[in-house]
Simulated assay, not measured.
Amino acid sequence: MMAGNPPHAEAALSTTAPSLPPNDVGRLVRRLYGIEGAVTPLAGERDQNCRIETADGTRYVVKIGNPSEPVPVVDFQIAALEHIARASARLPVPRVVRTLDGQARAATVLPDGRRCTVRMLSYLDGIQIRETPRTAAQRRAMGTLLARLDQALHGFAHPAATHDLLWNVAAAHRLVDKLGGIMDAPRRALAEAFMRRFIDHVLPRLGSVRAQVIHNDYHFYNVLVAPGDHERIVGIIDFGDMLHAPLVGEVATAAAFHMTGNADPFEGSAQFVGAYHAALPLAAVEQEIVADLMATRHLITVLISEWRAARYPENRAYIMRHNPAAWEALTQMADMSRNEARDRLLTEARKGTANEQHH
């Protein structure tokens, strides 16, 4: 059934995240890792994330997993980070920290009796790109680095890589039942139009594109730059939305975030796509649907965020952080045909690629 969602895909977004007090987190870290440090809460949608800082300034991230997260999916994320470390050691991704007894993850029981995983990663220093001014050079650096990350992940396989995830642009049709949750009639009509575009034009082509494990959440919150050089990327974080999916979905998901901040919504995204394409060229069928999938990313953002914000009003600000930009982008793209959107994106992307090669 088109509108049905696999139970654990929704469960991960509808089960309350753990919320242990900092003192309890500190005790847990001492017991499992032998590390003593100050505990600072970090933002998170599904898991409880905390920064641990030791007396000598060494920092880590401890992730107390959502009880609904299947353990094989946690193992998949750990294995992916360890694969990247081997395949491309210079990529700035977190490193897995082992427990005192050498394990990549541990478990704990929450006060309410729910069981969840615990894992620790190295902490990457840097500034989130969202806190810096956008530049063409920064966008190109982001595009090039994502291509390198995807090249490192190429060939990586894991039994849990095909897990169901609502944040998958290639499976947007499974969110049809969320359209009714949009109360504003014009906005609902807009979302319905883009859902039809996805089902009619994108879905039939997805069987003929490359697929592999992808990061799937490469945006301004999850990419870090050096404090003194906002075009030098020093960290890629949050591998919690990884899955095996179409590679073009990776590019489109990331490019969608570059639509805001310019008079021309395709200027920034084209700079990003152009740099990615120069490093890891998109095939003809991928070029045909990449702009469609950018719209699809905005579509699933509004559908999932509106649905979740209604259920978790206490976490509304975090859940809705990308919602206004997504509606703005859908409104902009509604005024043009899919062919025009494709051509605008690719013309600018090819122009950027030519300029890069010229320099």
Rank of each mutant, 00 (worst) to 15 (best):
A12P: 01
T15D: 00
G126C: 03
G34V: 06
N66H: 07
M294K: 08
V223M: 13
N49P: 02
R196Y: 08
A141P: 05
V74A: 04
A9D: 13
A38I: 13
E348H: 15
G235E: 04
T132S: 05
P92Q: 01
A89P: 14
V39P: 00
L166F: 14
N262Y: 14
P72N: 06
R316H: 12
E69F: 09
A157Q: 13
L280I: 00
T132M: 15
A317F: 10
G274A: 08
H298Y: 11
R27M: 11
L224W: 13
A252F: 04
A79V: 04
V234R: 01
R119A: 10
T16M: 07
R51C: 13
P265Y: 07
K178E: 01
T296A: 12
R27V: 11
A161R: 07
P133K: 08
V73Y: 02
P133L: 11
P6E: 14
A270C: 08
V118R: 04
E45Y: 04
V285M: 09
V109N: 00
V209L: 11
T15H: 03
A152N: 05
R140M: 04
M2S: 07
S208M: 12
W307S: 15
T162M: 12
R114T: 05
I304K: 13
R51W: 14
A152H: 03
R205I: 09
E69C: 06
P70I: 07
M294I: 15
G37H: 05
V302M: 15
V96D: 09
A87P: 00
R338G: 14
V118T: 10
N5E: 10
T353P: 01
H359L: 05
L121T: 09
V109H: 01
E356V: 04
N323C: 13
Y276E: 07
E10A: 13
A136N: 03
S208I: 00
E286P: 01
R297Q: 09
L28F: 03
L179D: 08
E10K: 11
A12K: 15
Y33H: 01
D101T: 11
Q212M: 05
A141H: 02
T331I: 09
D335M: 13
L166P: 06
M294S: 06
Q103V: 02
N355V: 15
H201R: 14
A171I: 01
A17P: 04
R95N: 07
E36V: 15
R140I: 01
A38T: 13
A136G: 14
A284I: 02
Y276D: 06
S305H: 14
L224S: 13
A252Y: 00
A136M: 02
V169S: 13
R297S: 00
M294F: 10
A80P: 00
G34H: 09
N222I: 01
M1L: 03
T144V: 10
H158T: 09
D241I: 09
E192G: 12
L280A: 04
I289S: 05
E348P: 08
A349D: 08
G235M: 10
E231Y: 06
M320I: 10
S337C: 05
F266L: 10
P159Q: 12
R140G: 09
R114H: 08
Y312K: 11
D217S: 07
A317T: 12
A252H: 08
I300F: 15
V202F: 07
G240S: 05
T108D: 04
D177R: 15
L346Q: 02
